[in-house]
Nucleic acid binder design. Structure first.
Length: 252
DNA sequence: TCATTAATCGCAC
DNA sequence: GTGCGATTAATGA
């Protein structure tokens, strides 16, 4: 594991020169930086950004590694997790294009409290902490957008705490399916993100076996379909009804 | 095809 | 609900 880590960071520094994708030509308007680009163009933040490419399964944020900057997802999908007792993984959230990884470590924190792994081939933009600081201190609109983002993240993580502590396993699994559907959408009736049963479990805060059991129950009830790793929703309304009393599907 | 890896299922606690 | 082990399906070289 240790050698893998250093490889990861070596790759990051090696690749920095090879493929810089300019913010100017970027199409990703979900990105906080892209949306504020007009005000930011002259900062080093833009001229000194780096791009890196992660293959599926590659970890690009290590738990405990020092924080030097923030990652923005240009393309792809990642899972953000923290490891608990017995190496049990708790997936904190999933992230897609335009979202920020590592923002919790920004500011006073020195080390990442989370790890992040690419779920598919993913392109990342990397901005150094110092350059971000400079831009934030000099541009209140940008800083305000950042603040909104943080407030929003806090909101989501609070409702996640509630869902894990108050919902049954079945409800949590359903909530997870709906969350992924909201976030990543579906193609041909199947969720546009392929996860293992273990990853569903790690997000829902339960065990892989439980996810399998709930899935097969839901299949019998014709609420979902499953073809290998692909999960399809057949009756979204009934699923929503089951967790409606918790009201969790409204946000996050 | 064979070998791994993932998904299920059954059962005890 | 959880965790282990056996079985079966899926995937990849």
């Amino acid at each position: 594991m240790r050698t893998e880590n250093s490889d990861t960071f070596q790759n990051i520094s090696q690749k920095r020169v090879t493929s810089i994708m300019s913010c100017n030509t970027c199409e990703n308007f979900n990105c906080l930086i892209k949306r504020n680009l007009n005000d930011l163009e002259d900062y080093r933040l833009i001229s000194e950004k780096n791009n890196l490419h992660c293959k599926k399964g590659q970890q690009f944020v290590m738990e405990g590694a020092p924080v030097n900057g923030l990652f923005f997802i240009l393309k792809g999908a990642v899972k953000v997790f923290s490891t608990g007792i017995n190496g049990r993984e708790q997936i904190v959230r999933f992230a897609k294009e335009g979202e920020i990884i590592g923002h919790r470590g920004f500011g006073t924190e020195e080390y990442y409290s989370i790890g992040a792994i690419a779920l598919e081939d993913t392109k990342l933009c990397y901005f150094s902490k110092n350059n971000l600081q400079e831009a934030l201190l000099n541009n209140s609109k940008f800083a305000y957008d950042f603040m909104l983002f943080y407030a929003n993240e806090l909101n989501k993580s609070e409702s996640k705490v509630k869902s894990i502590s108050q919902m049954t396993v079945r409800e949590r699994v359903i909530d997870t399916i709906l969350y992924l559907n909201r976030k990543f959408g579906n193609i041909n009736g199947f969720l546009n993100l392929t996860l293992s049963r273990k990853e569903y479990a790690d997000y829902a805060g339960t065990a892989e076996e439980q996810v399998i059991r709930v899935f097969s129950a839901l299949k019998k009830e014709k609420l979902i379909t499953a073809k290998g790793k692909k999960i399809g929703i057949t009756n979204i309304q009934l699923l929503k009804n089951e967790i409606s009393e918790h009201n969790f599907y409204l946000d996050s």
